[in-house]
Structures are given as structure tokens and as C-alpha cells.
Design a protein around this nucleic acid. Structure first.
Length: 595
RNA sequence: GGGGCGGUAGCUCAGCCGGUCAGAGCAGAGGACUCAUAAUCCUUGGGUCGUGGGUUCGAGCCCCACCCGCCCUACCA
């Protein structure tokens, strides 16, 4: 029994999430977490909504709301999306809680006291009317290199060159069109070079484990060679106050959103512990060197999880080249593994909310089964390379693999049992074929479990579905519908079938938690294979406004392995568990997308 | 410009440390069967493994060059 922290990327609360987001971090992390619980580990799965930063400020302005109001609205939408997908967080919270603010400030103070912040003066753009920093990408003007108008401050799309916004000809703010003012400003920079050696040692050690995806470890090592100090404060009025004399009351200086967002893994763990009534419980996952931690995200976040966040922890722990002392949270564990997925595209193009090339989670869930989507992502998602979601592929995989392969096996098994016995019959003497198929199901637990544990979801589900096909073959070969005068043999075949279906259901349940419970009921069970998350309206622990969180009790999850069926359990003819999709919906959905 | 990933049957993709590696699923064709959401099962796959060189007894798998697609390289998160 190992402590396993499942740290899931924090969705940015500037709008609802689309299926590309949840394909990258949501489904894979949930499959992993459910499996690890089944395998007997103590899993703590945490995440939350990331609510600070410039884009939310801008979105709020556009919507005529305060940033907090916008964040409130989007946090709730995101919570509903994630629960709808069955993602089994122990604590899904947000970054505007008082608890999070306090944890972030403690981390800042620890890093500061250990000497890993350097103050530097930089030269940047601000909006004269608001005093806010104008990030490079929010400035546009004529490219000084190719003369194309409309170039962004960071890069010219026309000639592809990277730019300094100060070099733009006639720069204007993309937010309100005003001319930006370039001013000097003081900021705290995280002294990453002073942490580079420790980061390198950590990465070498992780590399030696051989478990990271090759591109993630390579990329992480590569960016280490160009490491330089990075600003951790911003000229902005939306964020967490800098907890230092002379800064804390400054309304226009806040912590950089990424400094605070990654600390969410820790603050959410602490919040979870405080809510369970054992406020120190989180330390088992963070301070015990034996504990494991897996971080799930899309590839655009690798930098923050294999460099910034470990660097923050090393600095807080006092483990960089400047040394330092320990603080309230003790020595924090660095990530065991950074599990990054690639990107999901949509009908061959990139997701783009502004261009309406997008499928929102809520829309998908309003028309299709969550498990059908989860299956698609596990079987064809962007695990090691970009992959494409197309409606025709979704329909095809759902119909031929989930409905015709797995769903049909469940259906024919339950129907035969119901018709012939009305309950699960006991087995007589087993033939070689009986033993072989039972053994195939039992053996699948090792292969599927091993692959899930290594985050090879495509391999895992492929192996599971191959076993489904083996059982279907066994059924066809055994022809139980033709056994008329040998009740013992009939009972034996149906018993074996039922046992196989139950094993396969357990095997597939991390991928398909909703339908796993339905399949269990179809076999006369209680439908409690996979516990589901729930939304809870929580009070802020420190007197702030309340907010919805996702949590759940997953202690009753079914153990990983074959569980003998209970002879005599009543079984009736089942209703279909999986919904077969009409191919005509492909055109409907494409029309919806304007394609 | 620098770094990384990918280019394998119509489609989606497996192929670990080089030697049954030329494969699976889907689609298509033919057949069997009828318990099942017309589902299942069997048979059927000659694709120069992006291109051109090289290393080797032997290369999708190693090296070099090139072509194509994508990602990272941001004071966006």
C-alpha cells in the first residue's frame, strides 16, 4: 500500500472546457487514479480551477463582470463538466480560496527567506489607463522586420520571427486600442540558475527510472540548459498579494499566476486534509519520501511541472546551491512522474474557441454517454502524439467496439442466463476451453493493470478489448443456445460466461466507471463497482465565500482482480447498457461545427 | 534560428534492447450461426515501412542528408 498523489492540471477558468482539455489531463488521470485505488494504493487525487491571470481579467471586462464573478461562474461550469465525466477527485477546489492564498504566501516566504528570489528591474509595457501589465501577446503593431501590420508583440505570424514588443512600429493594445507605455518596474525573479544543478540531479534520477515518456524527459532536460531567472510577480491587480513589507498592500503588484497555480496541488491537499478533520494528513503524500506523485497535463504545461514547480519546491526545501532551511511544510516531494499528453485535434484542425472549432464538454455530455467519450480518449487519445477526434471515428469506435464488442457480450450473457436459469448457475466439470477462457480473463488483469500503471492507456484498453473478443469467440464456439439436453453443460457454459463478463467489467471499469456499474446490475449485482464523484457546496474554511468542490468516497472501489460470481444471484433480461449511435449524427455534428 | 515528436495496408495505429517485423483493429469481399442493440464467429491484407545514401552477416528499428506534418522555444495560461 503506497501513498500516491494524483496531481491533475488545473483548468483555466476563463471559460468552459472543451474536449481537448479533458482528453489531455482528465480522462487519463482518472483511469490511472481509479486503477491505483483498485490495486490497493492510497490515492489522493487533487486539482482545481486556476482563476488568476490576465486572460480572466480581460474576459471579465468583456463580459461586464468582476474577475471574481467571472471565475465563480466558470468554476461552477467546469465542476459540472468534470463530475459529468466521472473524474474521481478527492478534492477539486479553486485558487481564490483563502486557504490557497495562505499556502501560496507561505511558499513565497519560504523561498524568499532561503534566498531564491532576486529583485530585478525590467522594462515592460503597461496600459496607461489601468496601470496593468500588458503582456506581449496583447500588444500589436507593424512588424519591424517584414512590415506586416497586425503583428503580435511576441511574434509575427507573417514572417514567423520572434519580436520584442518595444520594437513594434505603432504599437497598440489589443484590449482597448490605446498606445502602451513602456516603463521600468521591479519584480521578484525566481533564481532558477541557483536551482539548476538540483533540478538536473532530480531529472537524471527520474530519467534513470526509465518510466517517463521519452519526449517529456528529453524536453525537460533540454530546457534546463537554457535556464534563467523568471519573474514571479506581475503588475496586475488580480491575483495573490506578495507577502512582503512594502509589497503586500500594493494593489498593482501580485504574484504571477503560474507561481500560485502549481502550488494548488499542495494547497488542495491541505484543504482536503483540513476538511477530513485531520489537518496534517496531507503530509503522508508530501513529506514521506516513499510516497509517489504523478502529474497529469497537456504538453504545453511541461515547463511548469518539470521545471518551475520542482524549482519552487527545491527552493522552499532549501535544496538549491544557496542552501536554506526548512519551513512549515517540511521537505516537499518532487514529482515522481510528469505524465504529459499531446494535443487532441478536431476533424483535423486545432481547437479554437474563437473560430468555433470546438466541442464543449457539456455539449458532448448532453448528447452522448460519458463512457463512450472516455473510451474514445483511452483508445485513441493523444497519449504519445497528437491525435484527431472526428465524429465518424467516434461513432465507428462506439458502435463497433463498445456496443458490438463489449456491450453485446454483456447482453447475450445476461439474456442467456435469464432465459435458462433466471439466476447465475453453478459450474460442473470444466472443459479445456472453459479453463482457457477463464484463465485469459484472469491473466488480463496483469497486462492491463501493468499498462495503466505505466500510463499506457491505449495498450491497456487494447489488451482488455482483445480479451473481450476472446470471450465472444468462446461463446460462439460453445453454442450454449444449442445445448438442449445437457443442463449441467449449459449451466457450466453460462457460469463461465458470467464469470468472464464480471472479470472483464472489473478490468474495464477504470475506463468506463458509469457503465461498469450498470453492467454489474445487469448481472444482478449492486452496481457499486466504481464510486462516482459528487459536487459539494462547501464553506470556505477561513471565512471567505463558499464555493462548489468535487469530492467523493472511493473507499468501496472494487479490488483489482477476479472476484468469483455468486451462484444463485437473480439475473433478468437486461436493457442495453451502451447506446448505439446513428451514423447520420455525423453530418448533424459537422453541421453544428459549420464544417 | 534552436530543441523535440511523427511520416508503416483505404482509414486509425502496434512494432521493446536491429535477426518469423512486415502486424492489429476498422472499412471492403465471401462464408457460418441466431443467444444478443442485424450484434457474434471464421476466411480474405502482396503495403518498395516519407526520400536518398551509409553502418552491419542482417535495418521500419542504428548513423547522415533531405522532403512533409505537428509541437515547444511567450511578461497567455
Amino acid at each position: 500500500m503506497t501513498k500516491v498523489l494524483s496531481a491533475v492540471a488545473w483548468p483555466y477558468a476563463n471559460g468552459p472546457r472543451h474536449i481537448g482539455h479533458v482528453a489531455g489531463f482528465g480522462v487519463p488521470s482518472d483511469v490511472f487514479s481509479r486503477y491505483m485505488r483498485m490495486a490497493g494504493h492510497d490515492v489522493l487525487m487533487v486539482s482545481g480551477s486556476d482563476e488568476h491571470g490576465t486572460p480572466i481579467l480581460i474576459a471579465a471586462d468583456e463580459a461586464g463582470l468582476t474577475p471574481q464573478q467571472l471565475a465563480d461562474r466558470n468554476h461552477r461550469l467546469i465542476v459540472e463538466d468534470l463530475v459529468g465525466l466521472g473524474l474521481s477527485y478527492d478534492m477539486y477546489t479553486r485558487t481564490t480560496t483563502r486557504n490557497h492564498h495562505a499556502v501560496v504566501q507561505e511558499m513565497f516566504r519560504g523561498v524568499h527567506e532561503n534566498g531564491y528570489f532576486v529583485e530585478q528591474t525590467t522594462y515592460g509595457a503597461i496600459s496607461p489607463s489601468t496601470g496593468r501589465t500588458l503582456p506581449d501577446r496583447y500588444i500589436e503593431g507593424t512588424c519591424p522586420l517584414c512590415g506586416t501590420p497586425g503583428a503580435r508583440g511576441d511574434q509575427c505570424d507573417a514572417c514567423g520571427n520572434q519580436l520584442d514588443p518595444h520594437d513594434l512600429v505603432d504599437p497598440v493594445s489589443r484590449i482597448n486600442g490605446e498606445k502602451p507605455e513602456f516603463v521600468e518596474t521591479r519584480h521578484f525573479f525566481l533564481d532558477l540558475p541557483a536551482l539548476a544543478e538540483a533540478l538536473g540531479e532530480w531529472l537524471d534520477e527520474r530519467d534513470a527510472s526509465g518510466t517517463w515518456r521519452p519526449n517529456v524527459i528529453k524536453f525537460s532536460k533540454n530546457i534546463l540548459s537554457e535556464i534563467r531567472p523568471r519573474a514571479m510577480t506581475r503588475d496586475i491587480d488580480w491575483g495573490i498579494a506578495v507577502p512582503l513589507e512594502g509589497w503586500v498592500d500594493n494593489p498593482t503588484k501580485k504574484l504571477y499566476v503560474w507561481f500560485d497555480a502549481v502550488i494548488g496541488y499542495l494547497s488542495a491537499s491541505i484543504e482536503w486534509a483540513r476538511r477530513t478533520g485531520d489537518p496534517e494528513a496531507w503530509r503522508q503524500w508530501w513529506n514521506d519520501p516513499e510516497a509517489l506523485s504523478y502529474y497529469f497535463m497537456g504538453k504545453d504545461n511541461i515547463t511548469f511541472h518539470s521545471q518551475i514547480w520542482p524549482a519552487e519546491m527545491l527552493a522552499y526545501n532549501g535544496q538549491g546551491s544557496r542552501g536554506g532551511s526548512q519551513h512549515e511544510y517540511g521537505v516537499l516531494n518532487l514529482p515522481t512522474e510528469v505524465v504529459s499528453s499531446e494535443f487532441l485535434t478536431m476533424e483535423g484542425r486545432k481547437f479554437s474557441s474563437s473560430k468555433k472549432v470546438v466541442i464543449y464538454v457539456a455539449d458532448l455530455l448532453s448528447r452522448y454517454q460519458a463512457d463512450a467519450f472516455r473510451y474514445f480518449v483511452a483508445a485513441a487519445g493523444p497519449e504519445n502524439q497528437d491525435s484527431d477526434f472526428s465524429w465518424s471515428e467516434f461513432v465507428q469506435r462506439t458502435n463497433s467496439e463498445l456496443v458490438a464488442g463489449w456491450g453485446n457480450l454483456v447482453s447475450r450473457t445476461a439474456t442467456l442466463v435469464a432465459k435458462n436459469f433466471g439466476e447465475i448457475p453453478s459450474a460442473g466439470d470444466l472443459t479445456d476451453a472453459d479453463r482457457a477462457v477463464l484463465e485469459a480473463c484472469r491473466a488480463a488483469f496483469d497486462e492491463v493493470g501493468d499498462n495503466i500503471g505505466r500510463n499506457r492507456m491505449r495498450h491497456a484498453i487494447t489488451a482488455a478489448m482483445r480479451t473481450v473478443a476472446e470471450v465472444n469467440k468462446y461463446v460462439t464456439d460453445s453454442e450454449p443456445w444449442k445445448i438442449k439436453d445437457d443442463p449441467d453443460r449449459l449451466a457450466t457454459v453460462l457460469h463461465v460466461m458470467t464469470q468472464c463478463v464480471q472479470d472483464l467489467n472489473t478490468l474495464l471499469s477504470p475506463f468506463l466507471p458509469f457503465t461498469a456499474n450498470e453492467v454489474d446490475r445487469a448481472l444482478g449485482g449492486a452496481g457499486d463497482v466504481q464510486p462516482l464523484p459528487r459536487i459539494e457546496e462547501a464553506d470556505d474554511l477561513d471565512g471567505g465565500p463558499g464555493y462548489p468542490v468535487i469530492t467523493g468516497d472511493y473507499s468501496t472501489i472494487r479490488p483489482w482482480g477476479s472476484l468469483p460470481v455468486v451462484v444463485g444471484t437473480p439475473v433478468s433480461k437486461p436493457a442495453p447498457v451502451f447506446t448505439k449511435l446513428d451514423p447520420a449524427l455525423v453530418d448533424d455534428e459537422l453541421a453544428r461545427l459549420g464544417l
